[in-house]
């Protein structure tokens, strides 16, 4: 049976993620309650505002459901805000709510404000060709440890990390026409 992928739809660009997975014939749906999260085999945490998504996760019990999904062996992919929420450490911020599942430290808005947002080609370990990275008020990873592995850098900054069934990207593959990262995540789910 095909894996059911949930896209966390509390806030952010969840519609683009859903469309991207539909294009490669995945079973995918928007989820925003604890029950809906737990009915999925894997979860995508979209781009958006990490403080907002974090507060909503905490307030409505969705965060606990995501931790449970992870404990059950479900794969999770966070893009941009999702990357921040997956990190154990957020630089200079001990209070912001997070899932804290990945052995990495992130810096928010690390490339600057919106007017510095950019696009560039990236080489990701595990992909056979470069892919386009769209960075919007994006974070980068300042440090990884333990089982976390940096799988992509841009100008010496870590912008994608993998740790077992967890994947985090600072950029937005869902905003491009290239579906290679969606295929990579699907392979992770099936492993």
């Amino acid at each position: 049976m095909a894996a059911r992928i949930g896209v966390l739809a509390l806030q952010g660009d969840f519609a683009e993620h859903i469309k991207a997975f539909e294009e490669i014939d995945c079973t995918v749906e928007a989820v925003k309650t604890p029950e809906a999260v737990l009915s999925c085999d894997a979860l995508v945490i979209p781009g958006g505002e990490s403080t907002t998504i974090g507060k909503l996760c905490e307030r409505f019990g969705v965060g606990e459901a995501i931790l449970q999904l992870h404990a059950n062996g479900g794969a999770i992919w966070g893009t941009c805000a999702g990357m921040i929420l997956l990190a154990k450490e957020i630089e200079g911020n001990d209070t912001q709510w997070r899932l804290g599942l990945m052995d990495m430290a992130v810096r928010r808005n690390a490339f600057g404000r919106q007017v510095e947002s950019f696009e560039a080609d990236l080489q990701v370990i595990g992909l056979d060709r470069p892919t386009r990275g769209v960075f919007i008020r994006a974070p980068f990873v300042t440090r990884v440890w333990g089982d976390a592995q940096a799988i992509c850098t841009f100008r010496d900054k870590i912008v994608a990390v993998r740790q077992g069934k967890l994947l985090a990207t600072a950029f937005h593959p869902e905003l491009t026409d290239d579906r290679c990262m969606q295929h990579l995540f699907r392979r992770m789910i099936e492993e």
């Binding site: 806030q11 952010g12 007017v115 510095e116 560039a120």
Partner: peptide, 19 residues
């Protein structure tokens, strides 16, 4: 590196959705 493209502008608007 292309700074501030149409995609990054509309992209920020997409990130605010549902908010």
């Amino acid at each position: 590196v292309q700074i501030s493209t149409w995609k990054t502008k509309v992209g920020l608007a997409e990130m605010l959705r549902g908010g």
